[in-house]
Design a protein around this nucleic acid. Structure first.
Lengths: 170, 170
DNA sequence: GCATATGTGTTATATTATAACTCGTCAATA
DNA sequence: TATTGACGAGTTATAATATAACACATATGC
């Protein structure tokens, strides 16, 4: 039985992105899982790719491709857009990162390998992004599609608003 | 009581975008409704704005800002990006059009004035976009957000796939 | 009629994303 | 071991999407 998607896989914290937690620890766990999964899949987690995932994992924010690129360039990797885009594309294809279309940005997947299709809650104040449990939402979406005979291949469900902390501060 | 969101407001056809229907008629109705609503709201449906809505209403596809711009320019309106973007922004703000982020494009709203937050089903084969009934999906999304204390301000729910007709053809 | 707000058009530029080619590395193989 | 072929990374160049800022006209409210 898969564990609760709304909790940290390791420490069990709820609403991972927005809750205070030992982030270094959480990032480390996710990175390790991603590397193991890549290995299993015969995909090569090269230095750039790993570094990009690490960058995304540094916090729970969504970063634009050019933000990532800037970091890479500063660290001696290539400094042209394709370098960042290709690594990000690899991560997304393998489920190690998500593309958040609302903000033209990318965020590390917190539950790699769990074959989920999450909804994203994006705090407009602090920019943090949470992957919320999506099963009921997906079910409703599938039902709506099925009702008119539409077959869904990929979908994105994204919400902009305020996280608990920022709402409290306001 | 509001009528069924999944049916043409006028002719009652289900799954408007994908169903065969008298589109000229459907477009005309929607345009008329939008103009009346703009009037009520004290918003000015100027020639460019009206024309852009007409262009979007010519079919049920999502059009990029530059596609719209090209049409406008050919008809003697301005030919610089802001002309299109501003008209589109106006239409979106007033609920006469929707922005479909997945494809960086805009589509006419088929149910203006009904205060809905629809789900978009985008056929990757024929490019048609349907606004599906969203209430259950929104409810599930709200529940997911509420569970972690996140307050949603705006959200987008978009799915890419195949419409009944294109699936039948394949 | 006058002042103001709003809308249109313009120039210029920012931001996001991809095409196409080159080179190096590594692994499988002859 | 030398060869080849796949893949990845780097580059140049350009495409596609979007906005800032200003000039001018026109509509609206007084």
């Amino acid at each position: 039985m898969p564990h609760d998607h709304n909790a940290c896989p390791d420490c069990g914290l709820p609403d991972l992105a927005f809750a205070v937690h030992d982030h270094a620890h959480c990032a480390e766990q996710v990175l390790a899982r991603a590397e193991a999964l890549a290995q299993d899949a015969g995909a090569r987690m090269t230095p750039v790719r790993k570094r990009v995932l690490e960058i995304l994992l540094e916090n729970h924010k969504a970063l634009g491709a050019y933000d990532v690129l800037q970091r890479l360039a500063a660290e001696g990797f290539g400094n042209q857009p394709p370098v960042a885009y290709r690594a990000l594309e690899f991560l997304v294809e393998h489920g190690f990162a998500h593309r958040i279309r609302r903000v033209n940005a990318f965020a590390a997947c917190m539950y790699p390998g769990e074959d989920h299709a999450p909804v994203f809650l994006i705090c407009k104040t602090c920019d943090l992004v949470a992957e919320a449990p999506a099963a009921p939402v997906r079910a409703a979406l599938d039902a709506a599609a099925q009702a008119i005979g539409f077959s869904i291949e990929r979908s994105n469900i994204e919400a902009l608003g305020q996280c608990p902390a920022c709402r409290g501060a306001a």
